[in-house]
Design a protein around this nucleic acid. Structure first.
Lengths: 95, 95
DNA sequence: ACGCATTGTAACGCGAGTCGTAACAGCTAT
DNA sequence: ATAGCTGTTACGACTCGCGTTACAATGCGT
């Protein structure tokens, strides 16, 4: 029932994980064990947080992997809900 | 922190949505607006519940799309957590 | 002013995942 | 036997995460 335009989870990573620690994108990517481009794509909203990436973030920053998964799936769901009307699904009842 | 082998969300769809109503897979697929193969793949655990499918299920069965998203992401996360050890991620601290 | 690090991004390929159609075999009920 | 439902295979289309490489732009220290 969350209706409002959630931020890309990548924004959250930058704002609440990287900036507070004063780290560079390059350094964080290296620690995460992914390419700089991969992390950059996430931070700038061009890619989502994959399940594997959620685990990486949880290790590197000492957070919970569930929170990253939840943020991402809420974001994905919000986009899908935008097209709820064009889905052409019939309501089901007992037969 | 959920540690236990979660069921494929497809199992849940069959057990708690389709069987109770006594509906056929074919009929449900038609109502959902997807192919019979697509639904069958989900029910038998060969495909996950996409964000769009979560919305379709929520319309057809009058459930919440969030619950389907959560079940799927918990399942995906559980699989990713199985490889937490081989991820080779460095713990980050302030610089 | 000059290097140097950092950053965003484009181009390309790879593998995985969702989805569709078409077709098949197996099952059950009429 | 005919019909319906089911799982599954094969094929292709599309999206997405990820890697490498390379480029342009920015900022910083000397």
């Amino acid at each position: 029932m969350l209706m409002h335009n959630p931020p890309h989870p990548g924004e959250v990573v930058r704002e609440f994980c990287i900036e507070p620690l004063g780290l560079s994108v390059t350094a964080v990517a290296k620690s995460l064990g992914v390419s700089r481009k991969t992390l950059s794509s996430i931070l700038n909203g061009h890619a989502g947080i994959s399940p594997e990436m959620a685990v990486r973030l949880s290790i590197a920053f000492g957070t919970s992997s569930e929170s990253w998964m939840n943020q991402q799936s809420q974001f994905d769901l919000w986009r899908a809900e935008q097209h709820r009307a064009e889905l052409n699904v019939e309501r089901l009842v007992a037969a």
